[in-house]
Write a protein that binds this DNA or RNA. Structure first.
Length: 402
RNA sequence: GGAGAGGUUCCCGAGUGGUCAAAGGGGGCAGACUGUAAAUCUGUUGGCGGACGCCUUCGGAGGUUCAAAUCCUCCCCUCUCCA
C-alpha cells in the first residue's frame, strides 16, 4: 500500500461520510507533490470554551491529520457567535467583548492541547474577515444561495414544517460559515453529522469564489450521558475534558450500559475486534457490564489525566459507591454550634440550594450522619468533631468542631 | 395591511372566574434494589415559615371583581391564510 492509501485508511476510519474520497486523495497527492500542508478547518463556538467528549471525537480526527503532517486551523466563530448556530435553539446572543473572546480563546488553547499538537495548530477568528464586510458584500454573498436550497437543511425544513420561527439571520449563518472556508482557503473541513449542510455550503461558496472545494468529513455525534440526546453542554449530559478524574469517572459510569460500545469505538484506540468480543461476552453473561464500563472510564480518563489518577478515580468510585464508604478526601467545615438540626446543617454546609429542597431530601432519607439516616429535618443532632455528613448521593462533608 | 390561532411552572403540554402552586408526560432529585452515578420500581419536584399559613409565578403594563392563568383595555412576540 502506498503512503497515500495508508493515510486514507487512517482518515476514513470512524467517519460517517467523506465528500469525497477521490478529492481527498487528490489533495493528499498534491500536497505531497508540492510539499505543502493541507489546511484542515474546524469551527468552534466562542461562548462555550468547555470542551467535552463529544468534541473529542472530532478533535481526534484532526489529530490524525496533524500526525500526517498537515495543519489544523481552529476557527473561533467570534462573529458567527452573534447569531448562534440554528442547529441549537438559541437565537441572538449577547455580544462578547474582546477581552471575553480572548479569554475564551485561551481556554480553548489550554483544552484542545490535550488532544491536538499545538505546534501544528493555528487559532483564527472569523471576525477578522466577517466584521469587515459591508452590506454590499453581504448581499453578494446572500445572492449566491437560494431559499429553497436553504430549506433543504434538515433543521430548517423541520422548523418550517412545524411552524417554528426561523429568522433571516439564521439563514445567513451557513453562508457565514461557508465564507469562512473561502477566507481560510480550507482544504478540508471537519464537523459532526449535524454540520453536513453547513460544510456543503462551504464547498459551494468556495467554488463560487474560484477555489477548489474543501473536502468534508463528518463524524458521528456522541450520545450524551442520558443515552438519548447528543452530548452537549446545554443539555448537561456531558463530560468536560478538564473535569476532575473522579467526576469523569462517575459520569462515565452513569451512561446506560448499551451505549458504552459506542464510547469504546469513538473515544479509545482500542481494536474494534476486541471491542466486539467484549460486547459478545457481556451479552453472553461471561463479562460483567460494570467491569467493562470501569475499564472504559479508566481508558478515557487516562487521555486527559495520568493513568494513576484514572485508576485512583476508579478506586475511589468503588469505595464510595460499591462499598458505600466515605471518600478519602472530604471537604471540611468548621462549626461552632454544639447542636444543629439536619436542616440547619444542610444549609450551613451549603449543600442545600433551598430549605424546601433540603427538607424534602431529608424526609426521603437522603441525609446521613456517620452513615445513619436522620429523617426529621428538625430533630436535634449533636455536633461532634470529625462527624461525616452525607447529603444526597454525592455530597459529603466532614465537620470540624470549633 | 386584512383575517384567524397562540404565548402556562426547567422542557413539552392541559387548564377559560374561586376546589390552581396549576392535570399529564419528559427531565431533575431522593429512596429501594443491583458488586454501576446502568436498568427497574417507588416517592418527590416554586420559595419562606417546624404544622394551620404567607409570598412570588401562567408574554408585558394597566383595569373589573370579595376573588383572575382564566374577564376587559392597550402593548410586545410567534405561527397560518389572504394581499
Amino acid at each position: 500500500m502506498t503512503k497515500i492509501k495508508e493515510a486514507l485508511e487512517i482518515l476514513k476510519r470512524g467517519c460517517v461520510e467523506v465528500i469525497s474520497i477521490e478529492e481527498l486523495e487528490n489533495k493528499l497527492k498534491l500536497a505531497e507533490k508540492e510539499s505543502r500542508k493541507l489546511v484542515v478547518k474546524l469551527g468552534a463556538d466562542p461562548s462555550a470554551p468547555d470542551i467535552h467528549l463529544g468534541h473529542v471525537v472530532v478533535l481526534r480526527k484532526l489529530r490524525q491529520f496533524q500526525d500526517l503532517g498537515h495543519e489544523v486551523q481552529f476557527l473561533i466563530g467570534d462573529f458567527t457567535g452573534l447569531i448562534g448556530d440554528p442547529t441549537g435553539k438559541s437565537k441572538t446572543r449577547p455580544v462578547l467583548t474582546k477581552e471575553e473572546i480572548g479569554k475564551n480563546a485561551q481556554t480553548y488553547r489550554d483544552q484542545i492541547g490535550s488532544v491536538l499538537d499545538m505546534k501544528r495548530t493555528k487559532i483564527v477568528f472569523n471576525s477578522d474577515w466577517l466584521s469587515k464586510m459591508n452590506f454590499q458584500d453581504v448581499l453578494m454573498l446572500a445572492g449566491k444561495y437560494t431559499v429553497a436550497r436553504m430549506l433543504e437543511r434538515d433543521d430548517f425544513e423541520n422548523r418550517y414544517k412545524t411552524h417554528q420561527p426561523i429568522s433571516i439571520s439564521e439563514f445567513l449563518y451557513p453562508l457565514m460559515q461557508g465564507y469562512d472556508s473561502v477566507a481560510m482557503k480550507a482544504d478540508v473541513e471537519l464537523g459532526g453529522t449535524d454540520q453536513k449542510f453547513n460544510l456543503l455550503v462551504g464547498r459551494s461558496l468556495q467554488r463560487e469564489y474560484g477555489q477548489v472545494p474543501q473536502v468534508i468529513l463528518t463524524m458521528p455525534l456522541l450520545v450524551g450521558l442520558d443515552g438519548v440526546e447528543k452530548m452537549s453542554k446545554s443539555l448537561g449530559n456531558y463530560v468536560g475534558i478538564s473535569e476532575a478524574p473522579k467526576d469523569m469517572f462517575g459520569k462515565l459510569m452513569s451512561i446506560p450500559d448499551n451505549i458504552m460500545w459506542n464510547y469504546w469505538e469513538l473515544l479509545t484506540d482500542h481494536d474494534m475486534n476486541e471491542i466486539k468480543k467484549m460486547k459478545n461476552e457481556v451479552e453472553e453473561g461471561k463479562l460483567h457490564p460494570m467491569t467493562v464500563k470501569k475499564d472504559l472510564a479508566v481508558e478515557i480518563i487516562s487521555q486527559f489525566h495520568t493513568h494513576e489518577e484514572a485508576k485512583g478515580a476508579r478506586d475511589e468510585f468503588e469505595k464510595v459507591f460499591s462499598k458505600k464508604e466515605n471518600p478519602t478526601d472530604m471537604e471540611e467545615y468548621a462549626v461552632s454550634e454544639s447542636e444543629l438540626s439536619p436542616l440547619d446543617i444542610s444549609v450551613v454546609l451549603g449543600f442545600a440550594p433551598s430549605k424546601s429542597e433540603a427538607k424534602r431530601l431529608i424526609k426521603q432519607g437522603g441525609f446521613k450522619v456517620d452513615g445513619k439516616p436522620v429523617t426529621d429535618p428538625f430533630s436535634s443532632v449533636t455536633i461532634t468533631d470529625g462527624m461525616v455528613i452525607k447529603y444526597g448521593k454525592r455530597k459529603f462533608g466532614k465537620i470540624i468542631k470549633k
